[in-house]
Amino acid sequence: MINKFSDDWCKAKFRMLTVAMLISTGFGCCQVADVDNSGETAGATVTQNVKLSSDSSGFVLLSEAVPDAILEIRYYSTYNFVGDRIDGYEEPLAFLTKEAASALKNVSDELITKGYRLKIFDAYRPQKAVTHFMNWALDENDVRMKKYFYPELDKKVLFPQGYIAEHSGHSRGSTVDLTLFDMTTEKEVDMGGTFDYFGELSHPDYRNITEEQYKNRMLLREVMLKHGFKPLVEEWWHFTLADEPYPDTYFTFPINSNSL
């Protein structure tokens, strides 16, 4: 009798390796489902053309477009679910499309009047970073960061359950991972859970947290929605510009000072 999970995991491995080969050999288009590497499963059952591009002309440096934002680029550091600096993050910078950055500036301006600043964990993510995540997912023995980011899950379910995928909405350039920073306490706002935690705790509507923590999540959500971003049902920190300029293009240029 065939073990269904084992069969699915083998298929997932084959699929990841196939996409990785397409990326490494420079193919500009392939057929894949549109799934974010960290839980973005919207439209995951729809197969569509995916275009790869190295053209950075539509992007801006987030620290210039939103100067009040605080940057903590987790994938440039080793404090992330992999435990290493991620490929493509060559400097601790954040890029966004011009349209997303403009909308985020409006978010920042409103939140400053309420006593908060935005703290950015991730914005544009190069395709090679997503490939790094996929390769990491194949190594079932590398669980260095499990107790911090996925203590409730066996690593081998991360790909089948959609936590890791071939393409990320971040690579389209109009998605941002962020939280609130309280200017009175000079600390991050308590959201009842940490960035990049894989599990139900990260769902924005999760209610087994304090009322204050839930209100903090809703404040971030409400202001982001007001200024044109759409949320993700699995992650309280993740938002994508609803009218994103490159809905079917995934960018490949690295994050460094020479890319823009």
Rank of each mutant, 00 (worst) to 15 (best):
42 A>L: 15
135 N>P: 08
253 F>L: 04
99 E>H: 08
126 P>C: 10
259 S>V: 06
69 A>R: 08
233 V>S: 10
238 H>F: 05
76 Y>H: 10
81 F>P: 05
150 Y>V: 03
75 Y>P: 11
19 V>Y: 04
115 G>Y: 02
142 D>V: 01
237 W>Y: 03
158 L>F: 00
142 D>H: 04
185 T>C: 11
178 L>P: 11
226 K>Y: 05
70 I>N: 13
33 A>C: 11
22 L>S: 09
218 M>D: 14
97 T>W: 01
116 Y>C: 13
194 T>R: 03
198 F>V: 02
158 L>V: 00
243 D>A: 06
118 L>Q: 09
121 F>Y: 14
240 T>C: 10
200 E>W: 04
3 N>A: 09
17 L>G: 05
240 T>D: 11
242 A>H: 10
227 H>L: 04
155 K>E: 01
88 G>Y: 02
11 K>V: 06
136 W>R: 03
124 Y>Q: 02
232 L>H: 09
139 D>P: 05
70 I>V: 14
159 F>W: 00
223 V>A: 09
224 M>N: 05
37 N>R: 05
176 V>Q: 00
109 D>N: 12
135 N>T: 04
14 F>Q: 06
242 A>C: 14
77 S>L: 14
212 E>N: 06
150 Y>N: 01
156 K>N: 07
218 M>R: 15
6 S>P: 10
190 D>K: 14
62 L>R: 02
92 P>V: 09
126 P>F: 01
217 R>N: 07
67 P>F: 02
215 K>R: 14
125 R>T: 15
255 I>N: 05
156 K>M: 04
168 S>L: 03
80 N>D: 02
54 S>D: 11
172 R>C: 06
78 T>S: 14
82 V>G: 03
96 L>V: 03
106 N>R: 15
14 F>M: 06
228 G>K: 11
107 V>M: 10
126 P>R: 04
79 Y>S: 13
231 P>H: 02
46 V>T: 14
223 V>S: 08
161 Q>T: 01
69 A>P: 14
226 K>M: 04
243 D>L: 03
186 E>Q: 15
132 H>L: 12
219 L>G: 13
260 L>K: 00
212 E>L: 10
33 A>M: 10
23 I>V: 15
95 F>N: 03
47 T>I: 15
167 H>M: 12
251 F>E: 03
96 L>Y: 00
70 I>A: 08
59 F>N: 03
114 K>S: 13
215 K>F: 13
15 R>V: 00
136 W>S: 05
214 Y>A: 07
